[in-house]
Amino acid sequence: MATPSSSPAVPQAGAPGADAPVAGTSLWKDAVKRLRKNRLAVFGFVVVCLVVTASLVGPWIIERATGYTYDYIPTDPALVNAQPPFTAPDGSFSWLHPMGTDDAGRDILARVLLGGRISLMVGVISTFVSLIIGITVGATAGYVGGKVDEAIMRGVDVLYSIPYMMVVIVLLAFFGGRSAIGQLVLLFIALGAVSWLTMARIVRGQVMSLKSQEFILAARATGVPASRIILRHLVPNTLGPVIVYATLTIPSVMLLESFLSFLGLGVQAPLASWGSLAADGIQNIAVFPWQLICPGLTMAVTLFSLNFLGDGLRDALDPQMRKG
């Protein structure tokens, strides 16, 4: 049977070190230093930066260079069909469409890059929102316990059980606004509404397990306020699973977004996200495989890199690792 160790309290995140007058700065400085030593994490960081930059300026460059935009359907009917990557209409090699074209003759590269803007924004913002809500709710429930915990977690259970589709349909009916910005805000509300639930459960489980450890008991005994204990001591110690779960949340919200666009929420065609490009591509996988491979690969590479970055961050922020 595992017994709590008799050794003194585990060092805490932000504990004052000999060389650091201000704890917070030291934490981040140290983390960045460690992160830079992690080659995979650096690689991940570089790729993510590249993808972000390409998504931001790529469509503009392509339009200047070739005239293609995400919604440009060629006027020549002969060009309105799917072309494989690097292939001209006559079958010879061409740089015009490095990712080929879709059924309407649109340049897939332009669509993938523009889709990246949407998917990355959706993935990162929604995950951030779910992190904030999930950690706050989960840590509170786990730390306070008792009736509060009971009430919060039953509330979470209710949210799990309400038919999500109906919520989205109703949201759209009432607020399905006129403006594109309104649609986007609605999308984040819809995505944020679900993605924090499991996060909250995970944080709560961790906090419940941590709160009887000596360093927390010690902090409580010395009269540190609850909010400070949660923020300074408990949350940093749950960051491992939380960061891992957050990196898992990014792909799942990206895919959820393509489901919501089925209900009419989110960006409107001809704009497409990575999720919806992949969903379209899969139908044609036996016929025009590049329509799946190109967006799918871009998405996979980005997620891989984000994940390496996430792992690196996890290790860098890990209070125990720092001790070594």
Binding site: A2, T3, P4, S5, S7, V10, I202, G240, P241, I243, V244, Y245, T247, L248, R314, Q320, M321
Partner: peptide
């Protein structure tokens, strides 16, 4: 992934 991170956390703990 959750197992790996959970295990890493535990393997370094005092008990």
């Amino acid at each position: 992934r959750l197992t790996r991170s959970g295990m890493l956390e535990v393997l370094r703990s005092n008990y």
